[in-house]
Design a protein around this nucleic acid. Sequence first.
DNA 1: TGTAATCTTGCATGGGTATGCGTGCAAAGA
DNA 2: TCTTTGCACGCATACCCATGCAAGATTACA
Lengths: 146, 146
Amino acid sequence: MKKRIQRQEVIRDIVRRERIRTQHEIVEFLQEHGFKCTQATISRDIEELKLTKSTGGHYVLAEDQHLQRMVHDLVEKVDRAGNMVVVHAQGGTAAGVAAAIDQANLNGILGTVSGDTTLLCVCSDEEKAIMVEEELLYFMGSIRKS
Amino acid sequence: MKKRIQRQEVIRDIVRRERIRTQHEIVEFLQEHGFKCTQATISRDIEELKLTKSTGGHYVLAEDQHLQRMVHDLVEKVDRAGNMVVVHAQGGTAAGVAAAIDQANLNGILGTVSGDTTLLCVCSDEEKAIMVEEELLYFMGSIRKS
DNA sequence: TGTAATCTTGCATGGGTATGCGTGCAAAGA
DNA sequence: TCTTTGCACGCATACCCATGCAAGATTACA
């Protein structure tokens, strides 16, 4: 069944892009995009996709959860200078945060360098850096994702 | 009202000691211990106690959540030698885990020393070290708390 | 002490989610 | 082609939790 895989792909995307709070929201979104399904199916998709409700009551992909938690719990400030994103983490945790960022494979990050409390994300260009900064701020809980 | 405060104390305890999954479980436990209340009251208590559902679907005190997450996400192994607990964390994160442990003020920990991937919890005696080890293993999700 | 204000709780209910069961469909095999 | 098997799904329903409302309990105050 290709429908199912495709649908789950769409769910991944939309959950990454927006703050989805209920399975019904997903059903509506899918229906607007040509998929026809019910909440029951979404419940099973969510199980398979390993989505969990994060702090704030919206769904998060398990693979994103680790980074999200690390950033939420440990990052204190995020700045940007050109194509570099500067992240300040709680004392001694920068390396850990950097590892989480590396592991998450965020789009546009070439690499990270970390000291004790600060780490640098080197991005391919300024545009990507802006996206990374936004992503991190989003994970911190500071902003609503655009 | 003293009843309410006492009841919430009991809820704190039981949530710390056992993996509580539903509010109904709390109601039953309380009724077995002489408190009489309904799920609605528990719902409000949980709100006030700042309990949240953690990974695994059981309730966790907010104040424990940070440590629990850090340990769950980052710690790979916990051992003990006498009054020392040896914790192996994912590369570069030992300092961060140590900070979380310090911050959580676990009973019996005199202090922590951390390298890059390993940290040492120095406990006041062997008994305390056993408790700390158990606590950390519990947070890792490895064991059911005794 | 009487009354008003506040707090605490239970009841009833609704929203959000999970799941048993049956159906339809497609692939594999006879 | 007919049968079997397994998967994906919807329907109905039950579970889990939050909350408006009203009543009872408690406290504050005159």
